[in-house]
């Protein structure tokens, strides 16, 4: 039963570009990117207990680096992607050193402050970043000579990336290391007494989450062919966090579901009401007050209740 559903889902996912119009294909690509981003944040929030309000830093910096490398400095896409990811990971390593001096609310405030530095820089260092105008006229890469310009090609590309990301992150949290990460989230003192180094476990996770944030950033800039400081803003970090929490932090599929909902809502809101920030705020209030554990755990609970009833 489960396998049939999975196969059906896979068939739909693979064949979508043949049946749906460009609008929906593009929307789906954006969902994949948002899902990768939310999954990476979930490593911190859900599995590590580190609530970051600065995750847009990694998406934004990778995107800006790729844009700058390919336009300003004339690198090819392959080299630019490598530099962007290395740069983003290095930055995550450094930010982790600072932010992990604190835990809890202190950590949240520091990640927020650090991401605001980058946002401010993107606006103000207009000599490099083009400031409020953003960097336009970017191209998509053509891996192995396959052009990603068409919506369908990009769709398959981002689908593949999302699958790899999901599998890799699932392996990560299920591993022995993932077990210690969850242990450190729940009982850091006990874990230290058992011989685990809580700081190092958090830091490694922080860097790894930064890496996947950077991958999401690359896809983001490839998709939009444009980058603007708002991608580094608190709103951008908050959208991802909302996706994680709405879907269910600390679950594997939850953040992907949550990110999908946030993205659909955002598309709808910006097309019809143009009040995305207000809606985002209201949804935050709603989720935290009404559904604090998220949609996926909520549904699972409901499903298990329905399952048990007949027997």
């Amino acid at each position: 039963m489960k396998w049939i559903a999975l196969a059906l889902f896979a068939a739909v996912a693979l064949l979508l570009p043949f049946v749906a119009g460009d609008f929906y294909v593009n929307l789906a690509s954006q969902i994949f990117i948002a899902a990768i981003f939310a999954l990476s944040l979930n490593l911190l929030v859900g599995f590590g207990g580190m609530t970051s309000l600065g995750h847009a830093s990694y998406l934004g910096v990778a995107a800006y680096l790729s844009a700058l490398m390919t336009t300003r400095y004339g690198f090819g896409h392959g080299a630019a992607a490598l530099i962007s990811i290395l740069g983003t990971v290095a930055m995550a390593a450094f930010f982790g050193l600072i932010a992990l001096r604190a835990t809890g609310l202190g950590f949240l405030m520091i990640t927020l402050a650090l991401s605001q530095v980058l946002w401010g820089l993107a606006y103000r260092m207009s000599g490099i970043t083009n400031g409020d105008n953003g960097i336009a006229g970017l191209t998509r890469p053509a891996p192995f000579g396959i052009s990603l310009e068409s919506p369908a090609a990009f769709y398959w590309f981002s689908l593949l990336a999302a699958i790899i990301a999901f599998v890799m992150m699932t392996i990560f949290v299920s591993s022995a290391f993932g077990s210690s990460l969850k242990g450190v989230r729940d009982q850091p003192r006990r874990m230290a007494a058992l011989g685990f180094n809580p700081w190092m476990i958090r830091w490694i996770t922080f860097v790894y989450a930064g890496f996947w944030g950077g991958i999401a950033g690359l896809l983001y800039v490839y998709y939009n062919k444009y980058i603007h400081p708002t991608s580094l803003s608190t709103t951008s970090s908050a959208e991802a966090l909302l996706g994680v929490i709405a879907g269910g932090s600390g679950t594997l599929a939850g953040p992907a579901v949550g990110a999908t909902l946030v993205l659909l809502l955002k598309n709808y809101a910006s097309a019809y009401v143009e009040r995305w920030n207000m809606l985002l705020g209201l949804v935050f209030l709603f989720i935290v007050l009404v559904m604090p554990t998220g949609i996926v755990p909520g549904l699972q609970k409901l499903a298990s209740r329905l399952w048990r009833r007949p027997s």
Binding site: I171, S174, S175, A176, F177, G178, S179, M191, L194, G195
Partner: peptide
């Protein structure tokens, strides 16, 4: 988990704990 704390495998990132 208590046993894992003293072993190098605690840094292992691809194999689930239950398979040890």
């Amino acid at each position: 988990l208590g046993l894992l704390g003293l072993l190098p495998s605690r840094w292992q990132m691809w194999r689930p704990l239950s398979t040890y």
